Structures are given as C-alpha cells and as structure tokens.
Amino acid sequence: MTSVSYTFSRDGRKLRTVVWYPKVAGRYPLVLWSHGLHGSPEVYAEIIQKIAVAGFVVAAPAYPGTNDKANPFDGNDVANQPADASAVISEVLKLDAQAGSPLAGKIDTARVGAAGHSAGGYTTAGLLSGKTRDARLKGAVIVSGGALGGKFSGASTPVLFVHGDADATVAYSNGKSLYDSCVWPKGFLTLLGGDHSAALTGKTPAATAVSKTVLDFLRYSLYGDTAAKSRLRGEATVSGVAKYEGNL
C-alpha cells in the first residue's frame, strides 16, 4: 500500500487529495473518503490505510472550507462538499486511463463507493440525495453523520451506518432517523456507550468491530463478496460493545 497526492479544482475550489492504493498489480474499486470538520486526509490515515490494504483505491480530499488548515473556516461549507466529492471521483477515475499515472490500470471504474465521518458522513449522505446524488455509487458508509440534501434518491444503493449511542457531537438520533427512512439494503452498527470518533482508531474491541464491519461491507457492496456479507453481522456484534441491525 502506498499513496500519491494531487490538487484538483472545482469552480476555483482547490481540492488537495491524497490517494492510497495497493501496490500489487490489479484493478481495485474506488472509495471516496470524506473528513470531518477541522479534519484532513492524514487525520483519517489509520482507517483509510486499512481500507486500501483490503483491496481498494481510497481518495481523500481536503475540503477547502472545513479542513484543518482552512482560512477562513466555514462549517456551513459542508453543503458544497458533495459536489466537491463527485468532482474528485471524476478526476481520480480519469487517472486510470492516463499514461504514466501511478494509478494507470489500477482502478475498477465501474465500482465506486463513498465513506466519511461526521461532516464527512453528512457529505456522504449528500452524495446519495437529491440534486447532489452521484449515480456512480454502489455502496456508502456513514459514520457519525446524518441527512444532507433531503431523502436518498436514485437507484437502490446499500448503506452502512456507524454511530455511537453516546455521541455528544452528532446525536445518535440523527444517524438513526436517516437509517430508519432508508428503504435500500442497509445496516446499522451501534457502538454502545460510544462517543463521536474514538472507535475509528486504535485496537479496542469497538475499533476492531468498526474496521471489520466497514471492510466486510465494502467487500460486499463493491466486490459482491458473499463471504464478507455473511461475516458482517457476526463481526459487528460484540457483547457490551457493539450491536447490529439491518437487512444486508
């Protein structure tokens, strides 16, 4: 697994993007990872690298209004991030066919997913909703997020929700209400007593449940891996730590 950095642009909005990808030859699905407020691609390197090692190209943009170096910082700019994310997806997919690119021949351009945490979870929801729906998405993971851009729309797309029931930053009810309204194949991983972000890092039982469940879901939704799908419920269920519900 290695990484490369690019700077893309959408309507004058600079989008520094780090792309992690497997070193082994082959074509891999693309996952767009969106950071939370005051975040960056590097802040989420631990979970992103786990995804990449599992057989994915992961593109992580630094959103211009909400990243850790944004000046001025503007939390309301999250509304512009789904369109940014779609633009990054388009630019990264082009690199698969670009001679001399480190990503040439490495991306399965028909298999695209999205994931994100906090404001990045909202951004991911926006990619599934209303005017900012990205029809290329085959699966999505919303961690500690909620609705953005209205109801989910377009073709049925599997969605995994991850949320701590003691989240003091984004209420558990925000994620749960979006899950409840979703009529697509879906799963919800509840972290019992879980806060906003701790389970994205480290080797705690909660962090292990999150990483295994996210990887199982991405393998299922982007690779059609039925073995991963069959593992998902068991790996998402840890007594006193995590519980799972859904129809995946």
Rank of each mutant, 00 (worst) to 15 (best):
S101V: 05
Y223V: 03
D180K: 13
D84A: 02
R10E: 13
Q98W: 15
V183F: 15
S3F: 12
L192P: 12
S239C: 12
G150P: 02
V92Y: 04
D180T: 13
G146N: 02
A115K: 02
R27H: 11
A85H: 02
A242Q: 05
D216Q: 07
W20T: 12
L215N: 13
V241A: 05
V141N: 01
N80Y: 13
G120P: 07
K229I: 06
H163I: 03
V112C: 02
V53W: 15
A168Q: 11
K212L: 12
T208S: 12
V43A: 15
T201S: 15
K23F: 15
P64F: 04
A59Q: 06
P158V: 00
A242C: 08
V112K: 04
P158C: 00
P61E: 06
L178V: 09
S181R: 12
G194I: 02
T201C: 14
K203D: 13
Y6I: 08
A207G: 06
L128R: 00
G26R: 06
R111L: 13
A25N: 15
I48A: 10
E42R: 14
W33E: 08
D96N: 15
V19Y: 04
S101Q: 07
F188D: 08
L32I: 08
P72T: 06
L160I: 00
S86L: 01
Y223D: 06
A227N: 09
G154Y: 01
T109Q: 11
V78N: 08
G100K: 07
L191Y: 07
S90G: 13
K138F: 03
Y44Q: 10
L232P: 01
L37E: 13
T132N: 01
G26W: 05
S90W: 10
A87V: 11
V53E: 15
A54Q: 06
M1Y: 14
T169G: 12
P22I: 11
G139M: 02
A206V: 03
H163S: 01
V58P: 04
D74H: 13
G246N: 04
G150W: 03
N71M: 15
A97Y: 11
T7M: 05
G116H: 01
R133F: 03
G187W: 01
Y28G: 05
T204P: 02
A25P: 14
Y21G: 10
R10P: 09
K151N: 14
V88W: 08
G139L: 03
L160M: 00
D77N: 11
A236V: 00
S34K: 05
V57S: 03
S40H: 07
Y179G: 05
D216K: 02
V92Q: 09
S101N: 06
S221E: 03
G164M: 04
S156I: 09
K106I: 09
G164K: 10
S153K: 03
D180M: 10
N80Q: 14
I48Y: 05
Y220T: 00
I51V: 02
T123P: 09
